[in-house]
Nucleic acid binder design. Structure first.
Length: 427
RNA sequence: GUGGCCAUAGCUCAGCUGGUUAGAGUGCCAGGUUGUGGCCCUGGAGGUCGAGGGUUCAAAUCCCUCUGGCCACCCCA
C-alpha cells in the first residue's frame, strides 16, 4: 500500500519554508496597515450561491473550478475560490460602511480552485489582498494600487510591470460589449471554438484570446466606449499614480470578465514568470457587486495577490529571509542522574524568555555539541554529575569557544549576557 | 478539461541496446576521545527502483493502467 500523500495540487509548508511565508504575510499586513487598512477574516467556505452570483455563471471559476458540496442538511456550500465577495458580504452585513467610508480592510488566506496544477498554480492557493469599500474615487483606486506596489517594493521584488486599463462605468461596458459583438460577428466563421462561445457569454474575453490575437489588435479599444466622465476618471487614476512615482503600462486588452466590474482594472506582472503564470496579482473596481449579492449599491475596489507566486519570484532571485534557527540555547545533560537537573535549568531559561532545547539523549558530549551547532544555538549549558553535586552549570559560548562554571542562580544572567552581546564569534 | 515530458537511498543524481546480491556524492547513526563542537579517519543503517498489471528464461530498463510532479494550452493568483 503506497503511503498517503497530500492531495493533488496541495503542498505542505515545512518549518524551513515558514520564515519566507511569514515574511510575506507580515510585510503585506505592515504595508496595508500603514495605509489605514485593518485585518479581516471570513469563513473558508460560503454559500455556493454567493459565488455563483458574485463571480458569475460563464466564468471558468464557477463553471468548472469550484470545490462545492452539499451538507447532510441540504446546504450548498463551496470552498472559497477568492475572497472579494465574502469580504464585501462581511463588511456590508455588519454595516461597517455606516460607521465610516470607505471601509479599509486587508486579508490573507487560502483559496481553492480545481485547476490542473503547475508551478505557481495550486488547487489550494494563497492570497493576500485589500478592499476599500464604500467610496468611488480615483484617489482610492490609486491608493489600492499603490499599496500593492509598495508591498512588492518592501519585499524587495524588482521588475514589477503594472498593467492597467479602464472599461468605464456599467453603461460604458454595455456599450463596449456591443461594439465588440458587432466587430467580431462578421468574423464568426474564422474564430476559434472558445471565442465562438465567448461571444455569447463574455465578449470582453475575446480580447485576450491568443489564437485570435490578430483580430484583437484591430478591435475597437475600450477607450472608444468611455463616456467623457469615465475617461476623466481614468485619467485621474493615472495622474495619482504618476504623482506617487508609480509607472504603469496601459493595456487595453486587460479585462476583468465580470459584469459588475467597472472603471479601473489592473494586474501586477513580473518578467521572471513566463507563459500562463505571468500575473502575480490583480484587482479592480467592482461597483456592481454589492447589488448582485443583495446589498444596497456600494462601490468598492481591491486586489488579490498570489503568495505562492511572490515566493517563486523571491526564490528565483535568490532573496528571502535567512534560515531560522531552532533554538538559542541547548541544555545538555551528561548521564541519567543529571537529566532532571538539566530539565529544570531549561525550564528556568525558557521562563527568562529564551528559546531552549533540552538534549537529554544518552550520547557523547562531542556529539551533543555538534548537534547544538546544527540547531543554530549560540549557547550550550552543560550539566553532569559534578554540576549536579555542586548546584552549578557549565555555560559555554559556542561562538567564542569558551566557558565558565556558574551557580544555578547565575545561569540566566550569564546566558542572557552572551546572547545579548550579539557576538556571532567565528560561526 | 486537452496534449506532451518525467518519477532510482532523507536530498542531488549515475545505472550503456533487458542479464548475478542496484551505485556515487551528501546527509543520518556509531566508533576513533571516562565530559568539550563546526574539520578529519573508519564502519553501519537506509531502496518491494512512485503503485498495480503485462511481455520475457530474466525488467529499474520494454508495454498498459493508475498516482504524483513539471511543461504547453485553457484560465487565472
Amino acid at each position: 500500500m503506497p503511503p498517503i500523500q497530500s492531495p493533488k495540487g496541495t503542498r505542505d509548508i515545512l518549518p524551513a519554508d515558514m520564515a519566507a511565508w511569514d515574511e510575506i504575510y507580515a510585510t503585506h499586513a505592515r504595508v496595508a496597515e500603514a495605509h489605514g487598512y485593518r485585518a479581516i477574516q471570513t469563513p473558508i467556505f460560503e454559500a455556493t450561491e454567493m459565488f455563483e452570483r458574485g463571480i458569475g455563471a460563464g466564468t471558468d471559476i464557477v463553471d468548472k473550478e469550484m470545490y462545492s458540496f452539499e451538507t447532510s442538511g441540504g446546504d450548498r456550500l463551496t470552498l472559497r475560490p477568492e475572497a472579494t465577495p465574502a469580504t464585501l458580504r462581511a463588511v456590508l452585513g455588519a454595516h461597517l460602511d455606516q460607521e465610516r467610508r470607505p471601509v479599509r480592510v486587508h486579508y490573507a488566506g487560502p483559496m481553492f480552485r480545481h485547476d490542473r496544477p503547475q508551478r505557481g498554480r495550486y488547487r489550494q492557493l494563497h492570497q493576500i489582498g485589500v478592499e476599500a469599500i464604500g467610496e468611488r474615487s480615483p484617489v482610492i483606486d490609486a491608493e489600492v494600487i499603490e499599496i500593492g506596489w509598495r508591498f512588492y517594493e518592501a519585499l524587495g521584488i524588482d521588475g514589477i510591470d503594472l498593467q492597467i486599463n479602464s472599461l468605464g462605468d456599467l453603461d460604458d461596458r454595455r456599450r463596449y460589449r456591443q461594439m465588440l459583438v458587432d466587430f467580431y460577428t462578421p468574423h464568426l466563421a474564422g474564430l476559434c471554438d472558445d471565442c465562438r462561445r465567448r461571444i455569447e457569454i463574455n465578449p470582453l474575453r475575446l480580447l485576450d484570446c491568443n489564437q485570435d490575437a490578430h483580430l484583437a489588435a484591430i478591435a475597437p479599444p475600450a477607450s472608444n466606449a468611455l463616456s467623457p466622465a469615465s475617461s476623466e476618471y481614468f485619467e485621474s487614476v493615472l495622474g495619482c499614480l504618476r504623482d506617487a512615482g508609480i509607472t504603469c503600462t496601459i493595456n487595453r486588452h486587460l479585462v476583468r470578465g465580470l459584469d459588475y466590474y467597472a472603471h479601473t482594472a489592473f494586474e501586477f506582472w513580473h518578467t521572471s514568470l513566463h507563459g500562463a503564470q505571468n500575473a502575480l496579482g490583480g484587482g479592480g473596481r467592482y461597483d456592481g457587486l454589492a447589488e448582485v449579492l443583495g446589498f444596497p449599491a456600494t462601490p468598492g475596489v481591491g486586489y488579490a495577490l498570489g503568495v505562492d507566486r511572490a515566493l517563486i519570484v523571491l526564490q528565483d532571485a535568490g532573496a528571502g529571509p535567512a534560515a531560522a534557527t531552532d533554538a538559542d540555547v541547548v541544555v545538555c545533560s551528561l548521564g541519567a542522574e543529571s537529566v532532571g537537573y538539566a530539565a529544570a535549568l531549561a525550564r528556568q531559561l525558557r521562563a527568562a524568555g529564551h528559546r531552549v532545547i533540552l538534549d537529554a539523549a544518552e550520547r557523547r558530549l562531542d556529539r551533543k555539541l555538534r548537534n547544538a551547532d546544527r540547531l543554530g544555538a549560540r549557547v550550550c549549558v552543560i550539566v553532569g554529575d559534578n554540576e549536579l553535586a555542586a548546584r552549578t552549570a557549565m555555560v559555554r559560548d559556542l561562538g567564542q569557544r569558551d566557558q565558565q562554571s556558574v551557580a544555578v542562580d547565575a545561569v540566566n544572567n550569564t546566558v542572557t549576557a552572551i546572547l545579548g552581546c550579539g557576538g556571532e564569534g567565528d560561526k
